[in-house]
């Protein structure tokens, strides 16, 4: 694999791993605080699965750049993270959390399906594994969007407010850089822009069935994955502080 291709792949792998890691942390913040005991357990499970996926993906990163998963997770600053912005926003209320999970689960389901045939075999192997786990995530978040959307005026109002806030940010999932064309030509990683239609075919009917209105005049976020809100700094301060207190500690 030549250097240009390798760097483009690294960038995408780090993006996937960071999406999982950051969402995992936000979901783990519900532990002990979820509205129902069952959901407390469910969110802890989602967070653990996502953390597992992040660890596996960072293992693939290590094979390419020599940095361990711990170095990548705990010793990078916000500017070096490549997650999309809507995953780093504070957990918000239950409607925000479940809608975010749903929009992201639908995206991941499509991404994993496409990556099954990646010419980079290690990546095809890991998504084959993730896919079975993701089915449970999507089923859960899909059901919660329905429950809240068809629930009370308050639950629908909260869900709609979350959608108004989040929708413009979802455009970031489907942005492509020049290097991505290279990956797509080599069959390594699908062009993110090509997945947007498939994603909308899944989420738009469900959102409509749940009485939600997708903002039509929103300004979509076009910033790249290297840009972040200050919320990522806050999250990393929390997530990384113990590891940074004593980098030589053994766990």
């Amino acid at each position: 694999m030549n250097n240009a291709l390798k760097n483009a792949l690294l960038n995408r792998l780090i993006g996937m791993a960071d999406d999982e890691l950051i969402l995992s942390h936000r979901n783990a913040e519900w532990t002990g605080h979820a509205p129902l005991l069952e959901e407390d357990i469910a969110l802890a499970n989602l967070a653990q699965d996502e953390l597992g996926h992040a660890t596996v993906l960072l293992g693939l990163v290590e094979e390419l750049n020599g940095k361990t998963p711990d170095q990548m997770a705990y010793f990078r600053d916000a500017a070096e993270f490549r997650n999309v912005q809507f995953l780093e926003l504070p957990k918000g209320d239950w409607a925000f959390t479940m809608l975010r999970q749903y929009l992201f689960d639908a995206y991941e389901t499509i991404l994993y399906n496409r990556l099954l045939t990646s010419s980079y075999q290690p990546l095809a192997d890991v998504v084959a594994k993730f896919r079975g786990e993701e089915i449970y995530h999507l089923r859960h978040s899909h059901m919660w969007v329905e429950r809240l959307g068809l629930g009370t005026d308050e639950s629908l109002g909260r869900l709609q407010a979350a959608l108004d806030q989040m929708w413009p940010l979802t455009a970031q999932l489907f942005q492509v850089s020049e290097a991505d064309n290279l990956l797509s030509e080599e069959g390594v990683f699908p062009l993110a822009a090509d997945m947007a239609d498939e994603w909308q075919e899944i989420v738009l009917p469900h959102l409509a069935n749940c009485s939600l209105h997708v903002p039509t005049h929103a300004t979509m976020l076009l910033a790249g994955r290297e840009t972040h809100t200050h919320f990522l700094n806050d999250l990393l301060t929390d997530m990384q502080q113990v590891a940074r207190w004593d980098p030589s500690a053994e766990w």
């Binding site: 069952e38 469910a42 802890a44 499970n45 597992g52 449970y136 859960h140």
Partner: peptide, 8 residues
């Protein structure tokens, strides 16, 4: 009751 339990 819950498709998520005490372990994954």
């Amino acid at each position: 009751q819950n498709s998520f339990g005490t372990t994954l």
